[in-house]
Amino acid sequence: MANERHDELGLSDEQVLDMYRYMLLARKIDERMWLLNRAGKIPFVISCQGQEAIQVGAAFALDRDKDWLCPYYRDLGMVLVFGQSSKDQMLSAFAKAEDPNSGGRQMPGHYGDRRFRIVSGSSPVTTQLLHAVGVALAAKMEKKDHVALTTFGEGSSNQGDFHEGLNFAGVHNLPVIFMCENNKYAISVPVEKQLAGGSVAARAQGYGMPGVQVDGNDPLNVFEAVKAAADQARRGEGPTLIEASSYRLVPHSSDDDDRTYRRAEEVEEARKKDPLVQFKAYLMDAGVMDEEKESALNKEIAQEVDEATEYAEKAPYPDPEQTHTHVYAE
């Protein structure tokens, strides 16, 4: 069907189906990790659930062959689109030697992969934002046309590094995209207690760049905003701050109990706007997907996640001697 929203954005039917596949894959990997955690097989999960549209929509708007990512710990959907596999995620979840992020050194969700220009991240929040500014500075100095995209939560937009990074990028007109994944909660503290002005995007004004608000439950909306920001950055016209709003559908992590600070009804209400449910409906309406295709996709993904889980569970742990390596160049 012509003139659907994705056509207007220059996305083919195949591409939007692919977007959905990545969103679903991220969700299924994430759900599997929770099961493994509750079964006592992996110590920790930090989740992407509810934010898949932001992550996948943004990654599709970038150039996967040259752009750089400085993601945060929920960006499962994003790193999958950039090239990491289901197996990579499970190797990380089980902390096995073959984990490409860290060789089993870091908790899951702490992405870093040289193959795909994903800079290694940490747990202290917002530090990665400055690294993206540094990558963008290097692009400018080397006259390359890659952009750096960094993501963070709305709580992180209160950290000094957020303000220092935006200002630095604004002053030096750098090709970087700052994307806030506003999921309404910083662990237990709601957005109302995080943002005095009510908006992350509005903060852009003080740093001389556009501040754009998008519906983070809609991957096409996110795609459009990130594409515009990337084009602007590549033209040498500087950074953009994007605030993509969604909702964290699960507790902060496997060690959190969100029933202590939010009502179940609120979560149920948010589930109605689940990006997966909405995007599926869009694709059905647009005639791009039908129940048959969707069920085949689900089956394929379930098998992929099964295989990844099985592989990672059997994979060897790092040798204890590895504790002492790679402190300095060897």
Partner: peptide, 20 residues
């Protein structure tokens, strides 16, 4: 740079990770 020590360090980290 702007008057921001964390950014001076953090931006340097990003640039060095890139290869500068």
């Amino acid at each position: 740079t702007p008057l921001t020590e964390s950014a001076i360090a953090g931006v340097s980290i990003g640039a060095s990770v890139y290869g500068m």
